[in-house]
Amino acid sequence: MTEVGEEPRADLKRRNNRAWWLVLPVVVSVAFTAVIPLMTVVNFSVQDVFTPSDRIFVGLEWFRSITRDPEVRSAFVRTLLFSAQVLLLEIPLGVALAVCMPRRGVWVSVALVLVALPLLIPWNVVGTIWQIFARGDIGLGGWAVNHVPGVDFNYTLDSTDAWITVLVMDVWHWTPLVALLAYAGLRSIPEPYFQAAQIDAASAWATFRHIQLPRLRGVLTIAILLRFMDSFMIYTEPFVVTGGGPGNATSFLSILLSKIAVGQFDLGPAGAFSLLYFLFVQILCYVFFTVLTRSGR
């Protein structure tokens, strides 16, 4: 019984290969929805497109200019900063929320529904809600901040206020996802672990630190990956709330990209931009994943 859970070796040539036919539809549809568009983007990224019939091969020209573009660079740093803040806020907050949720009883389902509520709202609706909520004149949130602590708050004019608004909105929207994942992880810890902690007179903090946290590693890896990818590519909500403003204060990479691609119709630079964007997300996810799973061994 000690050797359970071994992984079967990928010894495909000696095995039944017919199952691969079942994968075929996926391969075809992925080709149409992902590979072909991606190839089009690759195609654009190395050409200067004037009209669809009138284009010049420019090599890596666009890649060079995009990486040197100060606007892109500052948007890159801004997005990275945003993702970092999102992770730093949402992961601990989500875990804390999960720890506070009841483990059994009638309140379990009530807590689950309440926590999951923000996840059920479409992105652009979230944006609209917060656009109104955070307004100083008619929004409850904005008004309260302006009148109760008496801070001058206006996200349409002040870049810090705009940043905070977008950040708080993301935390409100996505912390529940982390919380639900963490809650599922916590529920899977067998009862004797908590009993042992009581017997060993472990404090609540020690119980969390030495029993709950180590056993959350798997789900937190997933939560971090999901939240990083998602926040690094955030588009809809800031587009609705701030439109990237004021100035460039909330102009993240995706907003800048759509401005270049759709607004200015610079397909070449936009193609190069997309590819670099895509590559960066891939690489960073890989790094996160490797670091997080390695450190667990």
Partner: peptide
């Protein structure tokens, strides 16, 4: 009271030494 369960209940990321020391340190 000290209690030992049917299946190993360990603080997995701790060393054996720290596991044994845990109830004393607490």
């Amino acid at each position: 009271i000290a209690q030992v369960f049917q299946f190993p209940v360990l603080y997995e990321e701790m060393s054996v030494y720290d596991n044994l020391a845990f109830p004393l340190r607490n």
